[in-house]
Amino acid sequence: MNHQEKPPEENLTKLMEFVLLGFTDVPHLQWFLFGLFLVIYIIILISNGIIFLITKLDPALQTPMYYFISNFSFLEICYASVTLPRMLINLWTQKRTISFIACATQMCCVLVLAATECFLLAVMAYDRYVAICNPLHYPLIMKHKMCIQLVAGSWISGIPVQIGQTFQIFSLPFCGSNLINHFFCDIPPILKLACGDTFVNEMMVSTVAVLFVTVPFLLILVSYGKLISTILKLSSATSRTRAFSTCSSHLMVVVLFFGSGMITYLRPRTSHSAGTDKVLSLFYTIVTPMINPMIYSLRNKDVVRALRKLLCK
């Protein structure tokens, strides 16, 4: 961690806006990147929108698992919409400025949605654990009221902490450069622009990351450890295959999202590089929302059946 000496008061300047450099290091690829990210954003909106729609309309999908999937799809649309439209505008206009307030708002939204995704993935793992390990008690445990409470808790729990963390970071004095070497307002590149000692902020970031990333991830691992143990004891090979199919899809999303998030926020500050941070951020802000419907929902026979029914209508 870098501890900078606080500069004299007269050298501090009140920054009114930042400049998101994005992918300016590859100027010859600007229009290609614009087209690529536009296609990705359209895929995210359409695929997750379809999943959200059919899980609400099809009577056969009115179960706790699909209730969580519909909320997850809606979350992915929100997550991508916080970063991708601004990135597309910057690539199209080449005007990369973002106001101080807009930058803080974007960071807060990203952090809140990321915390929600961590908890929601843990809830979905718990749902599968109860369904497979305690099938007789599943209807009693996963009642509709319980599902609503779990989803509401996932959405709400991160809001006060992430608002406080955002306020703390943007209360720091900023001086000198206002160039953010990133495609959105993320914590690591913002802290690099701060003057003075950022040790407390870095400790806060690590603590929140452990609370909102590591703890849900460990809960998921515990759930899947017991779940896989139960699956292996099933006598029917068909039942084992079906159960593993559901679990493997969810685990792929978990590994992709949590892996990139943990490396970004929990690795030592001295090992951070702008290029690595951008690549990792692309995974948990863009790649995961894009592939989620394909690897987690559209492989599901019930979802495919409901989609065919909707198209036939």
Rank of each mutant, 00 (worst) to 15 (best):
N2Q: 13
N2F: 09
Q4M: 15
Q4C: 08
P7K: 08
E9Y: 12
E9R: 12
E10T: 15
T13G: 01
K14W: 13
E17I: 00
V19W: 05
L21H: 15
D25H: 15
V26C: 10
L33G: 01
F34P: 02
L38T: 07
I40N: 09
S47F: 13
I50G: 08
F52N: 04
M65E: 15
M65Y: 15
L75M: 11
I77K: 05
S81N: 07
L88A: 06
I89K: 05
L91N: 08
W92S: 14
R96M: 12
T97L: 07
I98N: 04
A102N: 12
M107H: 06
C109F: 00
L120H: 08
V123I: 03
A125G: 10
R128S: 05
Y129R: 04
A131T: 12
L136E: 14
Y138G: 03
Y138K: 05
W155P: 04
I156Y: 02
P160Y: 09
G164L: 14
T166Q: 13
T166P: 11
C175L: 08
G176D: 10
F183I: 11
F183D: 05
D186P: 03
P189F: 10
I190L: 14
L191G: 05
V200R: 10
N201Q: 12
M204K: 10
V205A: 06
S206N: 13
T207R: 15
A209V: 04
V213N: 03
V215E: 06
F217N: 02
L218R: 06
G225W: 07
S229N: 04
L232A: 04
R240Y: 08
T241Q: 07
V255W: 01
L256I: 11
M262P: 02
M262Q: 13
T264N: 05
Y265D: 00
T276Q: 05
K278T: 01
L280D: 02
L280R: 11
S281I: 00
I286E: 08
P289K: 09
P289L: 09
M294D: 04
L298R: 08
R299C: 02
V303M: 15
V303I: 15
R305Y: 09
R308K: 15
L310Q: 07
K313D: 10
K313W: 14
